[in-house]
């Protein structure tokens, strides 16, 4: 599957209203999730709104996509992306609390200083801010899972 096909698939899923589509080929797996409807209308946690109203990306706005391409497909076109790595061991959270929307989704524009996730370590809640301006291309870790020091968390397209 090439990039264009993936984009079309994302567009299709976002329009169709289905909640999730998984596609698996021989060496390739992609899961596209439609964010629940209310995520688009509910304002984010006050903390996030004040800092930077997320700018919706044209095509993929209502969609949270997480693709898991095979290693071979990955190397070439991901090298231009900025990798946000974990500064500590802990647990990765995408939302400020379980009833709040994600800090960022795939397709969102982020700018330096914007909170993109929380890492809980020893009951310390660490808000991780983006160190670059760009667009979230991929979220590399599932919500509420343990992470290691230096583990890649996000791919950001700085262009």
């Amino acid at each position: 599957m090439n990039k264009k096909e993936i984009e079309e698939l994302i567009r299709f899923v976002s329009k169709s209203g289905v909640s999730e589509v998984s596609l698996e080929q021989k060496d390739f797996k992609i899961t596209i999730k439609n964010a629940p409807r209310e995520l688009q209308v509910v304002t984010a946690a006050p903390a996030v709104v004040q800092m930077a109203p997320p700018v919706a990306a044209p095509a993929a706005a209502p969609v949270a996509a997480s693709a898991t391409p095979a290693p071979a497909a990955k190397a070439s076109d991901e090298s231009k992306y900025h990798v946000v790595k974990s500064p500590m061991i802990g647990t990765f959270y995408r939302q400020p609390s379980p009833d709040k929307p994600n800090f960022v989704n795939v397709g969102d524009e982020v700018k330096p200083g914007q909170v993109i996730c929380i890492i809980e370590a020893m009951k310390l809640f660490n808000e991780i801010e983006s160190d670059v301006k760009g667009r979230i291309v991929k979220v590399l870790v599932d919500n509420a899972t343990p992470i290691e020091y230096d583990q890649p968390l996000f791919l950001v397209d700085p262009s």
């Binding site: 500064p87 330096p112 200083g113 909170v115 890492i119 009951k123 310390l124 809640f125 660490n126 808000e127 991780i128 801010e129 160190d131």
Partner: peptide, 10 residues
């Protein structure tokens, strides 16, 4: 105790 940190560029 509840501690909340902000982390930027490590």
């Amino acid at each position: 105790i509840l501690i909340e940190n902000s982390i930027r560029e490590r």
